[in-house]
Design a protein around this nucleic acid. Sequence first.
DNA 1: GTGCGACCTGGAGTGCACTCCAAGTCAAGG
DNA 2: CCTTGACTTGGAGTGCACTCCAGGTCGCAC
Lengths: 124, 124
Amino acid sequence: MTSLSIAEAAERTGLTAHTLRYYERDGLLLGEVHRASSGHRRYTDADLRWIEMVTRLRATGMPIRDVRRYAALVRDGDGNEADRLALLLAHRELVERQLAEVTSHLRAIDYKIALYENTLDKSA
Amino acid sequence: MTSLSIAEAAERTGLTAHTLRYYERDGLLLGEVHRASSGHRRYTDADLRWIEMVTRLRATGMPIRDVRRYAALVRDGDGNEADRLALLLAHRELVERQLAEVTSHLRAIDYKIALYENTLDKSA
DNA sequence: GTGCGACCTGGAGTGCACTCCAAGTCAAGG
DNA sequence: CCTTGACTTGGAGTGCACTCCAGGTCGCAC
């Protein structure tokens, strides 16, 4: 169980140190990150794994507020798995709808691109 | 060529009247929307088609700033098709990367979902 | 024991994309 | 004429997610 400084954790997770502190302050983590005697944060593997999950949720567009809610459920421990599942399922639904929407808009943009490529071919 | 009030245009485009005014003010449209003698905006079919394109660009994550740049190119007329194409191609590239990223994060979340479904199955 | 670099905190600031407000205009209905 | 409702404007306000700052602490190297 290695334990990393905030700078190292930032590098591992792809977040900034600022963001790591912000997530902790805002209740997105499972608790306070352990501190060294100096008061500096020390991130465990478990911390990093959780932060990776948070990153996945954020990268798929889940608002901070909902990540916080999910974190609260996990923090509360066993017994609310159904709630966690419901939250994740709702999120997946949303993401899939968004993926479909973006894909369809992208196709329309592709069509436009093809038009421009045609125009430029002819004029060349 | 019908011509619609801002409320009607809002309904057709799925944007709010506020947003339509904001887009116009911010240079995302191809020019000032025509006004009735009362000073009220009157949207033409061409306006709506352009707004639809803006909506597609926005819905795929293009920042306002870039939509404005694209609008400026179109407004400037013939001769810069290569620039427009480059802008759209760059955008497509970005969107595709994002789609891939979101999809891969979603798969990881799906895995988590499967774990919860398992847990709940067993305990049921 | 002084300087340095990495870190700490509470709180303020930033950028983006809207979103809303106050005060006013206009055309139509009663 | 007066009211009503849909609109106009410039500008202020909001929500989100960071991002940064000032002032301070800690432990190590010189």
